[in-house]
Design a protein around this nucleic acid. Structure first.
Lengths: 219, 219
DNA sequence: CAAATTTGTTAGAATGATCTAACATATTAC
DNA sequence: GTAATATGTTAGATCATTCTAACAAATTTG
């Protein structure tokens, strides 16, 4: 069984994977705040346990076994976030650190009960999909707000970044998952997007923000 | 801040302490399923952090600082057990293993919310007291079993006499500190008390014995 | 394409938590 | 009050996870 540390490596590999499923040693080291030699030697260990594929000077890939283990950790993380928000009155911006710890608890029944109490949710409070108990993830077709055109109506469904600062920014603008936006215009000079929603008749979102907001196109 | 492992040592010392607060290295090692040299070297480390008092060949004692840290871990453990039973539908017999893990989570708000949702409980599902958020344990007033009334549930908590014979008598009846007793009846002619506990459906304790058993009334 | 930069690897060491073997001290029992 | 037993300590090793320093390969850039 993977250690606490190994679980964190698996999760990072899962989250950092490019469309080919590859992660560089430097991205891995960076994301876990460890040195490259550390990441390198841990990857060799994960390879011995058949959790990753790895060749010198090549990027790392999760094996099916590693991917499933990683997905189950992610499942525990996202179920926990949902539980904290829906059942324990936490704000969505403050659940990440706690979930980072609880995701390593080994107690299937604990997470099964969360799942039942939440009615088997498929997305977490930030709109990220929750893998099922076999580690399978449902597919979504989200697009970044930055790729949408004026005149379109879209619904905010997920985020590519869940940093506290970003969530606090969204709170300050009363933007939440599920909010419906109408795209008024896109400024050519700085690529910012002007939208209206609810009581906000006109709100300008910078390119940086609009790239991180994933939306479902309504019309 | 104490590591996961150190927290387990502190908790064991807290739970194993005799009335003088002392714990032998062998009891400590035994309770944690580690070798004596391991316990010995960990204790030296805890001493460096001012969490225990220790002299070669002498029993170990928690410092006030160590005792407070230990009590806060115990608090998290017992609050968690209560939460699992009352809010998540667990049976009281299956919560221990999960609580052993969750007690090490560092997230004050998580446990504060549990505490609020449970209405600030003072005992856990097994009848053990829950230390407050300053690590203080409520004091219980012990009464002799001989003064209790039929129908009451009590927990054996202390003895007025610790002679070998008395302890051996208690051992022979599988009576230990912490055992919960239900008082079935009191015989008028010899003042003996009939109790049930664990697998002992019915056990008669003489007046002499029941005067020497100090119990905490549970209900 | 050669130089500069980035990325990755090896070697060697440190720390925390654990072990076994061997020895020392305390306690118990005759 | 010795001898036997139980308890405690030291020394030395191992394993997981981490580091820095030095070197090697791959990629980017002029």
């Amino acid at each position: 069984m993977a250690s606490y540390t190994e679980e964190n490596y698996l999760k990072a590999l899962y989250n950092l994977a490019n469309p080919q499923g590859e992660v560089s040693i430097s991205d891995l080291a960076n994301s876990l705040n460890v040195s490259m030699p550390t990441a390198n030697s841990m990857v060799k260990g994960l390879q011995k346990s058949d959790l990753v594929l790895y060749e010198k000077y090549k990027p790392v890939t999760l094996t099916p076994k590693g991917k499933k283990e990683a997905a189950l950790v992610v499942r525990k993380h996202r179920l926990t976030e949902m539980f904290l928000v829906k059942k324990m009155g936490f704000g969505w911006e403050e659940v990440h650190e706690v979930a980072e710890q609880i995701e390593h608890i080994h107690a299937p029944k604990f997470f099964e009960r969360m799942d039942e109490m939440l009615g088997h949710p498929t997305i977490d409070p930030h709109g990220s999909p929750i893998p099922d108990n076999q580690g399978r993830m449902q597919e979504f077709s989200y697009v970044p707000l930055s790729t949408c055109k004026p005149g379109q109506s879209v619904q905010l469904t997920a985020l590519t970044n869940s940093s506290t600062e970003f969530l606090e920014f969204l709170n300050s603008r009363k933007l939440a998952l599920g909010t419906e936006l109408r795209i008024l215009s896109r400024e050519a000079y700085d690529l910012s997007v002007v939208v209206s929603y609810d009581s906000h008749a006109q709100e300008t979102l910078s390119e940086k923000v609009s790239e991180r907001l994933l939306v479902r196109i309504l019309e």
